[in-house]
């Protein structure tokens, strides 16, 4: 298996928005930033990958498995971190573990306990009493406790302070080092400057670029004028939103 994720001609039509035949691949073991401004179609794409929405066309293969026919199987091997916590707010940290454990064949209570200890999550603290940063850590602890081979993150760093973001990026980097592939949807591009190997950039539902981060920066090298500074991802994102095209 060369790719952790293959998205081919993925299409979804809503009134006023179309995800237009999106195609990209995430190489196994890589961290890919999935970038676009708000409303570009990032969350729609992730929901389609997870079959939380019905696609109007295209195909998805996750870890070599068909995204529709083998949904139950591939979900054993992936983990998802959302922008908001998807657990009952009255659950304690301990209850979150008890609720998730039965669903995963390779769930490790020891691993979960290790992460909650590392992240400073009190086992009896209720979800509703956790700060935004602590909630993210709880989602990460849950995501990393069943030996997932693909981690999908949907805008996880929105609203986090720089320290919490840095800690999360460190954890992601460690996961990728141990072979876990990461698809990291965000509009906070400075996070990707630090950890991404690859970038897929979409705008208004259309693919602008997919490939290495270095290749993207190279394609926009002239953005700041001849002899100008190398553009960062933030500048590229702003330029794309203004209609500047990528040049291979």
């Amino acid at each position: 298996m060369d790719n952790a994720l293959d998205v081919v001609d993925l299409r979804k039509e809503y009134s006023g928005f179309t995800l237009d035949n999106l195609t990209f691949s995430l190489p196994a073991g890589h961290i890919m930033g999935f970038v676009g401004q708000n409303g570009a179609g990032k969350t729609t794409t992730l929901r389609l990958i997870l079959n939380m929405a019905r696609r109007d066309g295209g195909s998805v293969r996750v870890l070599g498995m068909d995204g529709l026919a083998e949904e139950r199987r591939f979900k054993q091997d992936i983990a998802v971190v959302f922008d908001e916590i998807p657990f009952v707010d009255a659950w304690s940290v301990r209850e979150v573990e008890a609720a998730l454990r039965p669903f995963y064949d390779r769930w490790s209570t020891e691993t979960f306990a290790g992460y909650t200890k590392e992240f400073g999550l009190p086992p009896d603290k209720k979800v509703k009493d956790l700060s935004r940063g602590m909630k993210l850590k709880l989602m990460l602890a849950a995501a990393l406790s069943h030996e997932a081979k693909l981690l999908i993150l949907d805008e996880p760093t929105s609203g986090l302070d720089p320290v919490a973001r840095d800690e999360m990026l460190g954890t992601l980097h460690r996961s990728a080092s141990s072979g876990c592939s990461v698809l990291f949807s965000t509009h906070i591009t400075s996070d990707l400057d630090k950890i991404a190997d690859d970038v897929t950039l979409i705008d208004k539902g259309r693919l602008v670029y997919t490939g290495t981060k270095a290749g993207l920066i190279e394609g926009f090298r002239g953005l700041n004028g001849a002899g100008g500074a190398t553009p960062n991802l933030d500048e590229i994102l702003v330029a794309v939103s203004k209609g500047v095209a990528f040049h291979a």
Binding site: K75, Q76, I78, V80, E84, F87, F103
Partner: peptide
């Protein structure tokens, strides 16, 4: 209230 569609969307459960 708890946006559990997200939880169910990620669980290996038909």
């Amino acid at each position: 209230k708890n946006r559990l569609d997200r939880l169910y969307g990620s669980l290996p459960l038909g």
